[in-house]
């Protein structure tokens, strides 16, 4: 990790990055908020990979979770509620050199931004999407989100949420050309780190849903899972998320799951009794839209001018 390379030079040393280099302003999330753990894991992934801070852009929508870019020491784009994905895809479209991360909430991604969620998955551009799913609208103070558990009392459904929650995993797996789908909890730092690292390493759109603690508005959901991990199912595979030895024993339920098997991924995702953690699906061969959108990027001005004249001449009289 210290980057002692054969071509060791001052430049390399000059540009050794510490965690601090990836930190922005002091996070302002509530005490005990799961967002913090996710941010820490992201910082660590950047540091371990020694990513150039000026080449990273973290893009978000609006919500508690979407504050994340401010807490990164990189470029950031804190845009509109639900609209992080089109912006992220646009950034990547003509700047393949930039490393684009997206932080989005369950309302941001699965509700107001649902159209973009489906289409970004299909575009499969090389970006990393992290959904901070606390099952509630946090920033706007406890309204029902698409993943709020049924009968849960919220400010918009004081008698209890009316419908069964949306299953983001089956929806995601159902999108043509999807290429990387993982799920994790925020309170297992080693696994979280491995998950984000694998997602970032993947070439294509990586979708990671993180079940996130919101002790203020949705405490019980995560407490139950923390207290009784029997509801969790750890997915294991050589090409899955590496499971550090230290965390192996935390999980009573483990399943050897082939991430190249879409059908098996659906079965695992659809079982709401056992919440899968790990890599559900991976397809390294999915078509990449960013390889198409960057077409013509390296044209010289002379070539462009020639092309422009050619286009114009078609209208000559």
């Amino acid at each position: 990790m210290f980057g002692i390379k054969s071509d060791w030079s001052l430049e390399v040393k000059d540009r050794y990055f510490t965690l601090d280099d990836y930190c922005g302003v002091e996070p302002r999330w509530c005490t005990g908020c799961g967002d913090l753990g996710i941010l820490t894991a992201m910082h660590k992934v950047c540091r371990e990979a020694q990513l150039l801070p000026e080449k990273i852009v973290s893009v978000s929508g609006i919500g508690c979770s979407s504050r994340l870019p401010h807490y990164m020491g990189t470029y950031g784009f804190h845009g509109l509620h639900g609209r992080a994905l089109p912006v992220a895809c646009g950034i990547k479209s003509r700047r393949p050199d930039l490393d684009v991360w997206v932080a989005t909430g369950d309302g941001d991604c699965f509700s107001i931004g649902a159209a973009h969620w489906v289409h970004a998955l299909r575009y499969n551009m090389d970006i990393t999407i992290i959904v901070f799913d606390n099952g509630i609208y946090g920033l706007t103070k406890k309204q029902t989100s698409p993943t709020t558990p049924e009968e849960y009392l919220t400010n918009t459904h004081p008698g209890g949420s009316l419908l069964p929650p949306l299953n983001p995993l089956t929806v995601t797996l159902g999108v043509t050309n999807v290429s990387f789908v993982a799920q994790m909890v925020d309170w297992n730092p080693p696994l979280l780190y491995e998950t984000l690292k694998a997602a970032h390493d993947h070439k294509g759109t990586s979708f990671v849903r993180i079940i996130q603690r919101c002790p203020v508005y949705m405490e019980q959901r995560s407490l139950d899972l923390q207290n009784d991990p029997a509801d969790l199912l750890l997915l294991k595979h050589d090409d899955g998320i590496p499971v550090p030895d230290t965390v192996q024993k935390m999980f009573k339920n483990q399943l050897e799951h082939n991430p190249y098997d879409l059908g098996a991924a659906f079965t695992v995702a659809a079982n709401t009794e056992k919440i899968p953690l790990g890599l559900l699906y991976r397809n390294p061969n999915a078509r990449r839209y960013d390889e198409m959108t960057r077409r013509g990027l390296n044209m010289t001005d002379e070539e462009r001018l020639k092309g422009l004249n050619e286009a114009l001449d078609k209208f000559a009289v």
């Binding site: 852009v57 089109p86 895809c89 646009g90 950034i91 930039l98 286009a311």
Partner: peptide, 29 residues
């Protein structure tokens, strides 16, 4: 003909995404 000058037409999923995508590219220079 956009390819003659190295450009690309992105048909987005809706108008909001269309401008969002353009804003992303613009922000990136």
């Amino acid at each position: 003909d956009f390819n003659l000058t190295g450009g690309f037409v992105h048909q987005a999923e809706d108008e909001i995404a269309a401008i969002g995508f353009a804003i992303g590219a613009s922000y990136a220079g």
